[in-house]
């Protein structure tokens, strides 16, 4: 039964594939609306504290590694491209191409996380983890931690979303190879694609807000 190439059937409660696809897409957009509000709380906190402590934010921002952040930005935008190509392959119903592009997306996503891991390690070594052991050149005011609290909360939550995304992509590869996706029914690829782009967009905001903010103060 498993060897047979058969597209996923229409669920019993839908009239046709169009209805099923439109429902899945709308559902994903609503989920992303929820995600915007979820991250929105952190962006609000960022706004409040940056307004309150502009000097500490500049100081903190200057501790971040812009070349690494820039490299990661490029990697992530590249992964959005490969994701789009996976969706395109799904629309054409080309099973092996879907799996290939998803694989490429996963490779780029993993690369991003590895770089992020090095960055986190670097912060650890330089006592920039908020808490009792926090120390930063230039001030002893504990409020200087706020930048790093937000840096870790925002990039951490973003990384968590990437990990979930990688899990979803990994789940799609065998499905794709089995021939589950057809031109009519590839909602999973489309949905995970939307999610992946969303996670990219979050980074597009995080990169300038966290990394580039302090440059002109330096």
């Amino acid at each position: 039964m498993a060897s047979e190439a058969r597209p996923a059937p229409l669920a019993h409660h839908f009239d046709d594939y169009d209805q099923q696809r439109e429902s899945a897409t709308l559902g994903m957009w609503l989920f992303l609306a929820q995600e915007v509000m979820f991250f929105g709380g952190l962006f609000l906190a960022y706004t409040v504290y940056r307004w309150k402590y502009p000097a500490f934010f500049a100081l903190g921002s200057n501790q971040l590694d812009v070349p690494l952040g820039l490299a990661n930005t490029i990697v992530l935008i590249g992964s959005s491209l490969t994701m789009v190509l996976a969706v395109r392959a799904a629309q054409l119903g080309k099973a092996r191409q879907i799996a290939g592009w998803i694989g490429a997306t996963m490779a780029l996503g993993t690369g991003f996380l590895v770089v992020k891991g090095f960055e986190y390690h670097h912060k650890w070594v330089h006592h920039l983890i908020p808490g009792a052991g926090f120390h930063i050149e230039g001030t002893t005011d504990p409020a200087a931690q706020t930048f790093f609290v937000l840096y870790f909360c925002m990039t951490g939550l973003h990384a968590l979303h990437m990990i979930v995304g990688l899990g979803l992509l990994a789940f799609l590869v065998p499905k794709a190879l089995r021939g589950d996706f057809s031109a009519e029914n590839h909602n999973w690829v489309e949905g995970v694609g939307l999610y992946w782009h969303f996670v990219d967009v979050i980074w597009i905001f995080l990169f300038p807000l966290l990394y580039l903010l302090g440059r002109h103060h330096a």
Binding site: F38, G40, G41, F56, G131, P142, T146
Partner: peptide, 29 residues
Amino acid sequence: TPVVAIAILLVGAERLFHIGVFDPKYGGD
């Protein structure tokens, strides 16, 4: 709901890691 979810998450982080998201001692509000 997601807004209260992130607020709860931050309370949890603050309690767990003793960081200052809302704690005035560390500049929080």
